[in-house]
Design a binder for these strands. Structure first.
Lengths: 114, 114
DNA sequence: CCACAATATGAATATCTGTTCATATGAAGT
DNA sequence: ACTTCATATGAACAGATATTCATATTGTGG
């Protein structure tokens, strides 16, 4: 038998990781944030809004989906503060909340296209 | 009544969006890609691997989860090519596939912390 | 080749998620 | 006020997802 200590758990690694690991709450928020991008309908909506503000019905037409389905998804995007809205009469115009979102979509696309 | 044509669908917007919209397949891949980041366990694993290569059991210890659960999630990360592995005897050491992943995690964290 | 150690896998289950359908809200014109 | 248009919302159902438990695979030392 060699002088290897087969400790099963590598203490140094454990310690190093524990030191640098973000808090549970932050990690949870991060996963919740990315979860929003993890649905094709929401991704499509975000790409639509890259072109500027668009009303609910137009989004529904573009995605060939019911107004209700879109509205539900917009609620999620709103809650996560990825989109904002503006009222004009009966019509609601949605747009991206900030340009972080564009960066995130681009970065993801880059990874896909390698 | 004003000279507004209330067409309900805004043709110019529709046309503009349709022109610039990525293909369905790409959008699907993108959402599938982000879906991986949309689970706290996988996010935790990725943050662990930011510190370098770590074996399965150590990950399980760090996250206080069963080896089986971790192994299942590693399979998904493997399939999506977010991690690679190296065998050393009975032990498998996992590590991040490339540095894109670190960028994506950082970008997400930035957005959370605003 | 046998026993054990490290990891992987399959089936089952409980929970979560997205769409649909019906209905509600809210604004504008008559 | 009433009707219509644009959007929002609630309940329900179907499909997806993560963990658990039991078991299989693969490598190592004796």
């Amino acid at each position: 038998m060699e002088e290897k200590e087969f400790l099963h758990v590598h203490e140094e690694v454990i310690a190093k990781v524990q030191e640098k690991m973000p808090e549970e709450e932050r990690l949870y928020q991060l996963s919740e944030f990315y979860k929003v991008f993890g649905d094709i309908t929401r991704v499509k909506i975000l790409f639509v809004l890259l072109q500027g503000e668009v009303c609910v019905y137009d989004i529904a037409c573009l995605l060939d989906m019911t107004q209700s389905a879109i509205s539900h998804q917009l609620r999620i995007l709103k809650q996560m503060q990825l989109v904002t809205y503006r009222r004009e009469g009966k019509t609601m115009f949605y747009s991206l909340a900030d340009d972080h979102i564009e960066n995130i979509l681009r970065l993801g696309m880059e990874h896909i296209c390698e």
